[in-house]
Design a protein around this nucleic acid. Sequence first.
DNA 1: CCCGAAATCATACGAACGGATGACGACAGC
DNA 2: GCTGTCGTCATCCGTTCGTATGATTTCGGG
Lengths: 148, 148
Amino acid sequence: MARRAILYGLVGGVLIAFLKFIEYKHFVHEYPTELYGGLVAILFTAIGIYFGLKWTRSREVVIVKEVLVPAGGPFVLNAEKLKELGITQREHEILGLIAQGLSSREIGEKLFVAESTVKTHSARLFDKMSVNRRVNAVQKAKDLGLIP
Amino acid sequence: MARRAILYGLVGGVLIAFLKFIEYKHFVHEYPTELYGGLVAILFTAIGIYFGLKWTRSREVVIVKEVLVPAGGPFVLNAEKLKELGITQREHEILGLIAQGLSSREIGEKLFVAESTVKTHSARLFDKMSVNRRVNAVQKAKDLGLIP
DNA sequence: CCCGAAATCATACGAACGGATGACGACAGC
DNA sequence: GCTGTCGTCATCCGTTCGTATGATTTCGGG
């Protein structure tokens, strides 16, 4: 914490300089003490906020909240969820390919269908899964046991 | 931020109370002005640091999100891989948020940086991980033990 | 004190994505 | 026959992503 000490030193230096400035100018005889107290207070509140934020700025807090431990097996497909959400085979197939990081075009080439078809499927899939992005769909599908 | 305004109000209130206290006790006639200036400075530096830390803390707490953990251990980060790939803390942080399905804009709002910054980070991240899509990055990161 | 790493921000552009809509054919079931 | 579901394809439009490029600031090490 050498840096901390140095910064405190700087703060002290600024304080002294500030007070000397006041004394030098003889302002103290012209305005009430409260004014200077207020100025100093505001100044050092700002300084405190600045350094407080600065010191803790890059702190990374990792809080992992574990909720469920479904299974440890190789993977069993959750057919009930599939039916419950009304996801068809084709949509499920495309969901798996999306999870592999393929683009719509690549999926279309792999399944020998047009890109627009894939987009239609994925759009309906997202609607049924109540998501609006690929990564969300993959995340949710894994949690629900729809894909490995 | 209404909370911010309220806190500023509190600071102002404390300041006024403190000055009234000085006036009431007539300490001002017994000790040099510098002493009071120093006391005020120290006090409000502390107040500033306190609120700076408080705000920072609350901001980072908001980041916390409940995550469904499938199975296995609580998750141990593969620090070697991280270093091997040259992934920085910030990039790793953004990788985690990408895995949660957040858009670049949402990540920026959560980390209080511009969207362009997030895009720069993710671009360098994809380069280091040798991928070219978000879903690929998430997939690979999970396999490598970079994220839960 | 200079240098490199890291983080920040900006701008621009093409590609990909998401949403909305419409259409057509196949096929099953009533 | 009519209807509903499913798969297919297309077009449009706005948003997001990925990439490239350049700039500034901060910080630590040589």
